[in-house]
Amino acid sequence: MTDILFVLLSFFAIIGALGMVSLHQPVHSALSLILTIIALSGLFALLSASFLFMVQIIIYAGAILTLFIFIIMFLNVKEANLPKEPNKNLTLFLGSLALLPLNFLILRAFYKMPLLTAPLEHDFGKIKPLGMELFTKWLLPFELISILLLVALIGAVVFGRKDEA
């Protein structure tokens, strides 16, 4: 059962990613990226990371990509504003050939890894132990991330302001 789920989810994730890279219109790319994100959240659920499953759907599919599609609609992109890519398929093909050795190297390093068979704790990946971990061992990175978010907020406001020359 989990095998069928895994194969289906990874199939949809890879199909969505390929569509995202190869489609011409940005809206179509964003929609296929949403397919990939939701399939990846299913894979997180298979790995018993239930909190990350929710975060992935709520934050990525719900907030980031919705904001993204909103921006694409807001900019009102016409066909003439899109870049012309006459030999897009050729560059995609050559690029994928160039990326093959990297994949081969990394996958060969992981080939001998054993299976994930040992039973997990019953609350593995739930929100409470994850929060305990986050606020004890990872407190300093958490605070630094909050500063980073503040800086990004200020940066977005500064960029978005109208410039009075």
Binding site: S10, A17, V21, L43, F110, M113, L116
Partner: peptide, 23 residues
């Protein structure tokens, strides 16, 4: 059987990462 080997997850992750780098 497939779904609980680490290699398959790493393979899917690497394929997605390569597609992103390709883009």
């Amino acid at each position: 059987m497939i779904a609980n080997s680490l290699f398959m997850y790493i393979a899917v992750g690497m394929i997605l990462f390569s597609i992103g780098l390709l883009g």
